[in-house]
Design a protein around this nucleic acid. Structure first.
Lengths: 219, 219
DNA sequence: AGAATAGTGTCTGTCAGACAGTATCGC
DNA sequence: GCGATACTGTCTGACAGACACTATTCT
């Protein structure tokens, strides 16, 4: 039985899960299998279950585990979306989180539920999204951009070892604009979050040094 | 009757309401009149009422109207606090907002419920606060500082007309450190949010020009 | 004149942007 | 040597911090 939503609101969590693919920022969307908005693409999300969740962030982590078979360590809250009309089931509070996933784990993930889960271009998904998820995605993108603009390094999007050029491509994909190589590397040179490995990647040109994230790094 | 909190969480809103008094940043606290935590000082807050609220922000505005007799236009969401143990009534989600109130309205406010409502120094209230409100206050302060550091002007804390020196005192109270007069005024000189009035305040020294906030200004 | 506060000017170091230049690989 | 990419150096303009200087009022 459904409870009277005039007295008790639905408490939902939604997640904007980002990754980098082909030097483009992608967001994970799921095709809804149930009413409401069946068949529409939406951000992965679910209902808070107080009996098993320890917090809203814990609920978000659980949803990602269940729906998408990914265990994400670091979720960041963006903001809430609330009101009587944003979900047809009645008065609802949706708490939006975002997370960054390194491209390494993409394959394992997409294999899990091939039909229902797909990566889309984060800046223009090319579909109408369910509920207010278009709006939510915009908010998550804005917060992500702000952090990168404030010189935070999105190392959680990178594989364990990466070149500075690859990191620059990732930042450019997030910000949607080209960055100057000299400026970018000057800032990195005194970042405590980056660690040189001394390893080099070889190819048909000058080898590039491989870096890794500082131990315990958090975006 | 109380509902089983193992199935349906409490949805609460709390508000950190700031003002400036004697060139110090103050936060409004209320002495709790009911269990739990009777007699403890706490941020004003309340339970979301879906039957009358249009959103969480609307609920926050309602709570301020009811508890504190103030109508605040601009509330900003900070973040959520959630879990099974933060409120003895059971699993709860608290959404924290903050707001800025010009000192003009202080008198009218404090008169409303003299015993139960009081302004405290925002950086060290000098009391243990109920629930996780000490933590919440810290988060609200951090967000407020970040905005002012990013050159946003806390004009909602100022009376309709104010001098640049008074504005500087306000920013210093928020940031907790002195600011250089020259630097401060240089930044203001090309701010579209400040409007000269041509009026001057007279005193036992050189008169200072009065400014006002741009029409439609929002922090 | 002197006290007090308002308001301005200037020097300096830091840093972002732009861009040129050098280095090192495969072929 | 050549193409390609990695990496470094340099010039410039904007701006923050520090601080001194001028301006205007009242007593």
């Amino acid at each position: 039985m459904v409870l009277n939503r005039k007295l008790y609101p639905l408490v939902l969590i939604d997640i904007a899960l980002f990754t980098i693919e082909d030097d483009a920022l992608k967001v994970l969307l799921v095709k809804r299998a149930q009413e409401p908005e069946v068949g529409q693409w939406a951000l992965p999300g679910g209902i808070l279950k107080p009996e098993i969740d320890q917090s809203l962030e814990g609920a978000a982590r659980r949803v990602l585990r269940d729906k998408v078979t990914v265990d994400i360590a670091h979720l960041k809250e963006v903001q809430t979306f609330s009101g009587p009309d944003r979900d047809p089931r009645g008065w609802s509070v949706a708490v939006l989180f975002y997370a960054l996933l390194p491209r390494d784990q993409i394959d394992a993930l997409v294999r899990s539920k091939v039909e229902a889960v797909q990566w889309f271009d984060a800046t223009k998904p090319g579909h109408r999204l369910a509920f207010d998820h278009q709006h939510q995605l915009g908010s998550a993108l804005r917060v992500l951009k702000e952090k990168v603009n404030a010189h935070a390094l999105p190392l959680h999007l990178m594989p364990p070892l990466f070149t500075l050029t690859a990191l620059q491509r990732t930042c450019e994909a997030i910000l949607g604009r080209p960055l100057d190589k000299g400026v970018f590397r000057r800032k990195l040179s005194d970042s405590p979050d980056l660690v040189e490995t001394g390893e080099y990647v070889r190819g048909p040109q000058r080898p590039a040094q491989l870096f890794k994230a500082r131990d315990g790094f958090r975006f």
